[in-house]
Amino acid sequence: MLEITNLHVSVDGKEILRGIDLVVQAGEVHAVMGPNGSGKSTLAQVLAGRDSYTVSAGSVRYDGRDLFALSPEERAREGIFLAFQYPVEIPGVANIYLLKAALNAQRQHRGLPELDAVDFLALVRDQLKRVGMDEALLYRPVNQGFSGGEKKRNEILQMAVLQPKLAILDETDSGLDIDALKAVADGIEAMRRPDRAIILVTHYQRLLDYIVPNQVHVLAQGRIARSGGPELARELERRGYAWVEAAAAGTGAAA
């Protein structure tokens, strides 16, 4: 579904990603881990189409197409979803309004009729329960005055309503207490399907206690320094990131 080849990305002339190779198949859950500043979030944002990054080399193919030929909204309509690390506040715009506009934009793109208010509300209420979110939050301005946990749940709600093919979750577990973490993890786990791929960007192992990934990748200094199964995440939890970084620095020097 997603094929990243030798991806180099820089911001303001500084290279953040320095040759990423990653293949994600439908039905798989990949965890991308790494220390702060290793380029995890950059990777997530570039895949979603943020234009403040410069792709200097490499390619990304999504469902066989050149991902970089698509605008952010086209990517979303083609089934890519990014759960933001820091969900954005939009004053005066009701949460449910954004959600409905998004869903209908995507449906329209797929040649489906727009949902009317009644059908839409039924769909959202159903998903609200799964995420454990208060219905009142639907009518508040997008993310404004939401607690950290509410913001993250709101991202999961959006994902559940939009039903993407490829979900990228950028540190969705950060800043959550244990109950919220459980709810968010359940929400993600429920999305797991043979025709869907999920990329979990995370700093900590704890989310992976609930969602067991098919593969774990460790990013260090803009490269995937190590890949492995779920056991790699546990090893990181035990030993920290230093040893991977040291190894990455070693290969970096050799290259």
Binding site: R77, F81, F84, P87, A105, H109
Partner: peptide, 12 residues
């Protein structure tokens, strides 16, 4: 804000 909306499929 703009990118957030776009990443949900809403045109700029």
């Amino acid at each position: 804000q703009l990118f957030y909306c776009q990443s949900r499929g809403i045109a700029a």
